[in-house]
Design a binder for these strands. Structure first.
Length: 476
RNA sequence: GGUCCCGUCGUCCAGUGGCCUAGGACGCCGGCCUUUCAAGCCGGAAACGCCGGUUCGAAUCCGGUCGGGACUGCCA
């Protein structure tokens, strides 16, 4: 039998990295087994669901490379993959359950219910203890609740946690249909998992306490239970569930700030899983071949942005030059503030390999090369202070200007040759002799390698900036 | 409060009774290389929460304890 897995986000927010990781594991498992991965949109919360969030979710999933075989936009043999299209189905299931006695109508007010919860808590009882089927439930109206058998334990196997058991008396009579006729998550999700023949449900551990409800519902529908796998939660550095207050949690933020999808994929796959004891960098094909839900660890993982950016740097350097240039161009132009013409772009290409080695996130590449295209407004104060001295400074700059004026041809090799000869003559070390030049030309003591940078900048601009720095130095 | 889950370096993982004087990765510290910064290379500090038990032998099995987390809604 072929496996069928799904990811079912709610479009009430952007795609969270936690959801992305869950989607990734579902995808890996489906692909490993040659099964089906499907995307369902759980938009039963009509109030909070928006098309914009849905678009963000689809875009993010595609960006990560998690293609789905069935689901919204691609369709499939089972009808709509959007829950808002299937309200009648859920209503009819709820009605059937009432008719069979498995569920009942309840028109108690939220105040009444709240009082019962308070009472239960005061008596140290499970919250749902008093929320049970009344003597004579109304024939219609209100919400529809499932009647949970109190004397039986609900036991199910979980691929990552083993056997999990809940006592019936600890499970409240949960609502499946709201008073406005819309289904709750428990109903819609379970009915869909049954209708779409989902074989494995891998989702966040936060849903573990809801799982006995889903098991009960599945049984009430007389359907086969899927295999569950509750994935460890993603935490922030404070050990609490990862959320907005920990910083950026939208997957699309990582796309928009210059992370590479392969790197994010690789990093996310390592949260709660490992390919083996010592490989950290591996391709999605390797992950796909090795992945098993049963190997997922059961303890929560802290999302570490530092490791992610390190990994992004690894992928950045592993790209071939051509790909790097294509990816980086928009960022370079954004940093420069305008589009570059072909001559300018050719200049960038002479240093692009050097820039690539120094880039972790795409936008950093832009920052490194703005000086090639625009005169900077001011020198980085710390760089200036560290490197420029009134004593030796003007002399070095003069000597460099003089020799650079005569360099021929104007390329990195002859520039290096000339400047090294100068250092020799003046008897200064490379650090002392070259740094003032770097600051004069790039505005900062940190830049791509100097000789190549000067070559790319051009003789006129180089001399102009050296003169400008010299003037500034003397004026100070 | 109740229910459930979890507990190996700061962090992510490896480890499924002896191969563990606990391994890899990020980060951190030191060094080398070097025109800056990166990258690279070399080295270092850094963990089995605690207490019992089982066993010839426990990070690995059992119990307890402590700690953390999730859930506890007509959100998902």
């Amino acid at each position: 039998m072929t496996v069928r897995l799904r990811v079912a986000p709610s479009p009430t927010g952007y795609l969270h990295v936690g959801n992305a990781r869950a989607a990734l594991f579902n995808w890996l498992y489906a692909r490993h087994h040659g099964g089906t991965f499907l995307l369902r949109i759980d938009d039963t919360d009509l109030e909070r669901s928006t098309p914009a969030f849905e678009a963000d979710i689809l875009d993010s999933l595609r960006w990560l490379g998690l293609d789905w075989d069935e689901g919204v936009e691609v369709g499939g043999p089972y009808g709509s993959y959007r829950q808002s299209d299937r309200l009648e189905r859920y209503q009819s299931v709820a009605t059937t359950l009432v008719e069979s006695g498995a569920a009942y109508h309840d028109d108690r007010t939220t105040e009444e219910l709240e009082a019962l919860r308070q009472k239960a808590q005061a008596e140290r009882l499970p919250p749902g203890h008093y929320i049970r089927r009344p003597e004579s439930p109304p024939a219609e109206g209100g919400v529809i609740r499932i009647s949970v058998p109190q004397d039986e334990a609900v036991v199910f196997d979980d691929l990552v946690r083993g056997s999990v058991s809940f006592e019936g008396r600890d499970i409240d009579d949960f609502v499946i249909l709201r008073s406005d006729g819309t289904p709750t998550y428990h109903l819609a999700s379970t009915v869909d998992d049954v209708d779409y023949q989902i074989t494995h449900v891998a989702r966040g551990e936060d849903l573990l306490p809801s799982t006995p409800k889903h098991v009960l519902l599945t049984r009430a529908l007389d359907a086969a239970e899927p295999v569950y796998a509750h994935l460890p939660l993603l935490f922030g550095p404070d050990g609490k569930k990862l959320s907005k207050r920990h910083g950026e949690t939208a997957l699309s933020h990582y796309r928009d700030t210059g992370y590479l999808p392969d790197a994010v994929f690789n990093y996310l796959s390592l949260l709660g899983w490992s390919i083996d004891g010592d490989r950290t960098i591996f391709s999605r094909e390797e992950a796909m071949a090795a992945f098993d839900l049963a190997d997922v660890s059961s303890n929560p993982a802290v999302f570490d942005p530092d490791k992610l950016s390190w990994m992004n740097g690894e992928y950045m350097r592993a790209m071939d030059s051509k790909t790097f240039r294509e990816k980086v161009r928009p960022h370079v132009e954004a940093a420069v503030g305008r589009a570059l013409d072909e001559d300018e772009w050719a200049r960038f290409e002479t240093v692009s390999d050097l820039v690539q080695e120094r880039t972790r996130l795409l936008p950093e590449a832009g920052e490194q090369v703005v000086f090639l295209f625009e005169d900077f407004a001011g020198y980085d104060p710390r760089s200036w202070e560290k490197v420029m001295s009134k004593e030796g400074g003007p002399g070095i700059l003069d000597a460099a200007a003089q020799r650079l004026g005569a360099v021929d041809p104007w390329n990195a090799e002859s520039i290096e040759e000339t400047l090294r000869a100068m250092l020799e003559e003046l008897g200064v070390g490379a650090g002392k002799g070259l740094q003032p030049l770097r600051v004069a030309v790039t505005g900062s003591s940190v830049s791509p390698p100097l000789f190549e940078s000067l070559a790319a900048l051009g003789r006129d601009k180089t001399l102009e900036r050296v003169a400008r720095a010299r003037a500034q130095l003397l004026a100070s």
